[in-house]
């Protein structure tokens, strides 16, 4: 079982389109949408939900107004300014529980909070584990961990070859949770200043956590000068570029039809995505290469 996670730093570079195409190309796999904040992979894969679970995030403070003596101690001590007029602002509360511990009349309870839902679904390409984090919820990293854990379990039980994870944008909590322990990170970038800048940061994140990263430059031909800059940077940082996907209007058309582009039409982009998947499958097979020799924390 090998797990590949698709990341980018910058949003909108084509992670989900590529993940959707991999879903159609890989033989024996489970799909996993780690972008629990704004999950879109399901739009391409038409899942039918088979299992559904509540996700319990952290705790939230709750003030019982009947008991509260309005001493205001909680308001003064809360570092997150989450208590106003003897009421807790659920959005600001981080669930540290200090208020509940110090309340002189024990008017505050910590209650667990259903922060989202997660699902195991059937798609025509195989099982999909996905989630929906509630608006303004904390603990997206924990939900990502839960989704990945279930995908691993499905892969183990079904003796599947691949776990294909569509990751979130950024470099913070949910990204770290999607990345750590994966066998390979595919970083999708685009030849824009923002894309290049964000690629540099996400490469550093992969290195920090000791996960081998390879790069795909999407729409490489929309600005070939920037593409060359990215190539040069990747070269210097010893990060392999495994694919250059040309700009192709068919990709947007496929997206409008909500179909993975490799299923939509034979075009330059879909041909290159097929190559990309073959490269990835090859890299995942070659154990020595997917090791982490020379990388920080490269102990597994």
């Amino acid at each position: 079982m090998k797990e590949i996670v698709i990341l980018s730093g910058k949003g909108g570079t084509g992670k989900t389109s590529i993940a959707g195409s991999f879903a159609a190309l890989a033989s024996s796999k489970v799909l996993c949408d780690c972008d629990v904040d704004a999950a879109d992979l399901n739009l391409l894969l038409e899942p039918s939900v088979e299992e559904e679970y509540d996700f319990t995030g952290g705790l939230l403070a709750f003030i019982n107004a009947d008991i509260c003596c309005q001493c205001n101690l909680c308001t003064q001590l809360c570092r997150f300014s989450a208590i106003k007029d003897f009421k807790v602002d659920d959005i600001a509360c981080e669930g540290c529980g200090l208020c509940a511990r110090i309340c002189p009349v024990k008017a505050i309870d910590m209650k667990s909070n259903v922060a989202g839902r997660w699902f195991v679904s059937k798609t025509k390409y195989g099982p999909l584990v996905h989630a929906r984090l509630g608006i303004a919820q904390d603990n997206s990293g924990k939900l990502v961990a839960q989704v990945r854990q279930r995908a691993k379990q499905i892969a183990a039980e079904g003796d599947l070859d691949y776990i294909i994870s569509d990751g979130p944008p950024g470099t913070g909590c949910p990204v770290i949770s999607s990345l750590t322990g994966a066998d390979l990170a595919l970083l999708v970038t685009e030849p824009t200043l923002s894309g290049a800048h964000d690629l540099e940061r996400i490469i550093q994140v992969c290195r920090h956590f000791g996960v081998k990263a390879v790069v795909c430059i999407n729409k490489f031909d929309i600005n070939e000068l920037n593409t060359r800059k990215i190539e040069q940077f990747c070269n210097e940082s010893e990060t392999r570029i495994v694919s250059r996907i040309p700009y192709d209007a068919a990709v947007t058309e496929a997206l409008m039809q909500a179909v993975p582009v490799v299923e939509y039409t034979e075009c330059n982009a879909s041909e290159e995505i097929i190559n990309l998947w073959q490269n990835i499958a090859f890299l995942l097979k070659d154990k020595n290469d997917v090791g982490n020799a020379g990388l920080k924390n490269g102990s597994f």
Binding site: M1, E3, G141, V144, A145, R148, Q149, A151, K152, Q153, A155, A156, E157, I176, S177, T180, G181, F209, G210, N297, S299, F300
Partner: peptide
């Protein structure tokens, strides 16, 4: 010392 990095077990399944 630790044999894996931070967060390693966050998603590790039971049959690796």
């Amino acid at each position: 010392q630790a044999n894996v990095g931070d967060h390693f077990g966050m998603s590790k399944g039971s049959n690796r």
